[in-house]
């Protein structure tokens, strides 16, 4: 996504501060893709991601006066989206919602096949992880949080965070292998 012109962004943010619906719509459209990509990797479906996205944007529009305009809006936005996703995750943990993923067959596949897998499919694999694996993997690998920070955020031990990350990787490898085999079969057929 191209970096948004700072003058236009400032004007949009001004409009949003005045609760101008048109400015809000434009800002939403402008950062929809960026924010949605964050939400998708913290959730198991697009519907769930949309819920977090709108929760996050509602916070953006209602708390915009607390945004420091000298800092990056994208960083602030991503932080809000991640926090909203974590809130959502905590609620899920309380409801004890977990599901397991089938073990993939242990097959060795050529890496060129992997490179042909679309981004959506790869993010889809993250979505298939159990919530605790998914959250730790996203926070650690994609958003660059340390295990200490993750442990603090999720109220778990550092060891549990490391263990979840390790298992998440294992699961992803399994799923990746399965996809690769399917794709390989499709190509060779």
């Amino acid at each position: 996504m191209p970096e948004y012109n700072s003058a236009v962004l400032h004007e949009l943010l001004d409009g949003c501060l005045r609760k101008n619906r048109r400015s809000q719509e434009l800002l939403y459209k402008q950062f929809y893709g960026y924010a949605m990509s964050i939400c998708l990797r913290y959730t198991r479906s697009r519907e769930e991601a949309k819920e977090i996205l709108n929760d996050g944007f509602l916070k953006v529009f209602t708390k915009l006066d607390s945004f420091d305009s000298d800092r990056s809006f994208k960083t602030w936005l991503s932080r809000i989206m991640i926090n909203t996703a974590l809130d959502h995750y905590r609620q899920e943990v309380r409801r004890d919602v977990f599901d397991d993923v089938e073990m993939a067959e242990q097959v060795s596949v050529d890496e060129t096949v992997i490179s042909k897998i679309a981004h959506e499919e790869l993010v889809g694999l993250i979505q298939k992880l159990t919530p605790s694996y998914r959250i730790v993997f996203s926070l650690s690998v994609i958003d660059g949080y340390t295990h200490e920070e993750i442990a603090d955020q999720l109220n778990i031990s550092v060891g549990a965070s490391k263990s979840n990350l390790s298992r998440a990787r294992e699961k992803l490898r399994e799923m990746l292998s399965k996809i690769s085999i399917d794709n390989y079969d499709r190509v060779t057929r």
């Binding site: 949309k50 981004h119 790869l122 993010v123």
Partner: peptide
């Protein structure tokens, strides 16, 4: 099973996440 080292696996998923650009839904 794919024998990808951790850093390669991480890079693969990081790149996909960053480059993913979902279409706007009105």
């Amino acid at each position: 099973m794919i024998e990808l080292p951790d850093d390669e696996l991480d890079k693969l998923f990081r790149k996909s996440s960053e480059e993913l650009d979902p279409q706007f839904d009105p």
